[in-house]
Design a binder for these strands. Structure first.
Length: 266
DNA sequence: AACGTCAAGGTGCTAA
DNA sequence: TTAGCACCTTGACGTT
């Protein structure tokens, strides 16, 4: 069952987050991966009727200056990105790496001799040792103060800016991963609630049919019906108002019936 | 060739 | 004003 199918039930499932922390908050003190969904916010699901005229609108796409003058930017970017020789010397830095790591990085080195022959932006790859140390540090603290950054950069033979960028990207990856986990969790919630909704609709139809089938004199007054205690929580009537019926049964629309299976919520 | 990954650049926001 | 961050994007490189 796809998401479109879920959304075809005549109901709208709202996915909300009651945030406990501003998403722009500066400090993320713990890595989020693997801690289950919704750290820092509480997912909330609401089922409501489709209003009919609302469609999903993706967030506005930001058009950066890059797109307006792409070619110019590429030139500038290529020229500026690696103008700092300290980036290019990064390969020499991981001299303690194994032979496989040497192989891994060999094609990425821009030697000083290559420097003036090509302005092309070459991708820096961190060595396994560097990545491992960065990961280890990230586990301890996902953000760095300037001193930690300096120390780590010195230890890794990288520029502080590179360490900073690595942590920024690492946080972004963590957040993306967490978002995917949350998404899966909410999809499951959606499926569960859709199924519950379907079941309750069916139960309601059965109750209505039962009521119609019974002779009028056999219908019990409301006061004699047994209310399902757990349904105290499930509010909201479906269908006609009680005042239209021969009997006024209810403030709570859903009553326990001995002819039906009790609610799964019970 | 298409796609995924990731280092790094650009931009806007916020707190100090 | 500025540093630091999130977010978005680019481009190089590896993999399929």
């Amino acid at each position: 069952m796809g998401f479109d199918d879920i959304c075809n039930t005549g109901l709208v499932l709202g996915l909300g987050f009651s945030s406990t922390a501003d998403h722009k908050s500066k400090k993320i003190t713990t890595p989020l991966v693997g801690k289950g969904p919704s750290l820092g916010f509480e997912p909330s699901l609401t089922l409501s009727l489709i209003s009919g005229d609302r469609t999903y609108e993706p967030p506005p796409i930001k058009i950066s200056k890059d797109h307006q003058s792409a070619d110019l930017y590429r030139q500038d970017s290529a020229a500026s990105s690696y103008s700092n020789a300290s980036v290019k010397r990064e390969r020499d830095v991981g001299s303690e790496e194994t032979t496989t790591e040497v192989e891994r990085v060999s094609s990425r080195v821009i030697s000083d001799e290559d420097d003036d022959s090509s302005n092309a932006r070459k991708k820096l790859r961190l060595t396994k040792a560097q990545s491992a140390l960065l990961e280890e540090s990230f586990k301890i603290h996902s953000t760095l103060n300037p001193k930690q950054k300096q120390d780590l950069a010195r230890e890794l033979n990288l520029r502080p800016r590179q360490v900073e960028v690595w942590f920024q990207n690492r946080r972004a990856r963590t957040k993306l991963k967490q978002t995917e986990v949350d998404c899966e969790f909410l999809k499951k919630c959606c499926e569960t609630l859709t199924e519950e909704n379907r079941r309750l609709h069916k139960e309601l139809q059965e109750l209505k049919a039962l009521k119609i089938a019974q002779p009028l004199y056999m219908q019990l007054p409301a006061a004699t019906l047994t209310m399902c205690p757990s349904c105290e929580r499930i509010g909201g009537g479906v269908g006609e108002t009680p005042s239209k019926n021969a009997f006024t049964i209810a403030q709570k629309p859903h009553f326990y019936s001995p002819f039906n299976n009790p609610s799964a919520a019970c």
